[in-house]
């Protein structure tokens, strides 16, 4: 029985130790989430903290592709059966280091579609480019969605966001994502009725 116990102990330690060590990592957090209406589009901006840690920097310096994924949801606080469903979007920021050119290539993909690319020359620029997002148009407000938002009072519709910066295996077996908790902000539904000339200019993706 001691031999069996030894085998089980070794197996358990070998399998679960990486998972246990990963549990101690600090999770990222989204701050300054804002939403705005620009014509027929809903824009969002945010700042991600504690995502650009040492392992991420080492991965980038080693030339490994590294991505942060931002998930957005448009929801109403009191949901009705006729409310539009699956109003979600995701922005994936993928960075890769070109050691010969000594520059960081950054690609922005909204719902799987490349919307912009840029190059960062240093890590500070790269971190800012990957963690300071927006304002960026994430939803097109059209048809039923727009009508529904216009029918709501201010503060009844919210934009929720979450960032996923990696993945790990819980207990070494079950894959889980490393990400921030969901954060929400009110959608300025009153701005939907502004005249077009008063609408804010369409901003760049970067500040």
């Amino acid at each position: 029985m001691r031999l069996v116990s030894l085998v089980l102990l070794i197996g358990t330690v070998g399998v679960w130790s990486p998972a246990v060590s990963a549990l101690g990592a600090e999770d990222p957090e989204i701050v300054h989430l804002h939403s705005s209406v620009a014509g027929r589009e809903l824009q969002a901006s945010l700042h991600l903290l504690d995502a650009f840690d040492e392992p991420t920097r080492l991965r980038l310096e080693a030339g490994m592709p590294t991505s942060f994924t931002y998930h957005f949801k448009l929801e109403t606080k009191r949901r009705w059966w006729f409310d539009p469903t699956d109003v979600t979007s995701q922005l994936e920021v993928i960075a890769i280091f070109d050691a010969i050119d000594r520059e960081y290539q950054i690609n922005y993909m909204l719902d799987g579609r490349l919307v912009q690319s840029r190059v960062a020359q240093d890590l500070r620029s790269l971190e800012r480019a990957m963690t300071v997002i927006g304002p960026i148009s994430i939803f097109e407000l059209d048809g039923k969605l727009r009508l529904r938002l216009e029918s709501l009072e201010e503060g009844k519709s919210v934009l929720r966001a979450r960032a996923v910066v990696g993945s790990r295996a819980w207990l070494g077996i079950i894959p889980t994502s490393i990400g921030s908790p969901w954060l929400e902000t009110a959608v300025p539904v009153n701005d939907l009725s502004l005249p077009r000339e008063l609408e804010p200019a369409r901003p760049s993706l970067f500040q």
């Binding site: 070998g14 399998v15 990486p18 392992p55 080693a62 030339g63 050691a99 010969i100």
Partner: peptide
């Protein structure tokens, strides 16, 4: 130069993923 840089990058990648590689090897053996 490209070869040297690529090799260096590969080495860095290996170093970055040393725990995973060790885990892979150990787990494979296990």
């Amino acid at each position: 130069t490209r070869m040297l840089v690529d090799a260096g990058q590969a080495s860095r990648q290996v170093l970055v993923q040393e725990p995973e590689i060790r885990s892979v090897q150990t787990l494979t053996f296990l």
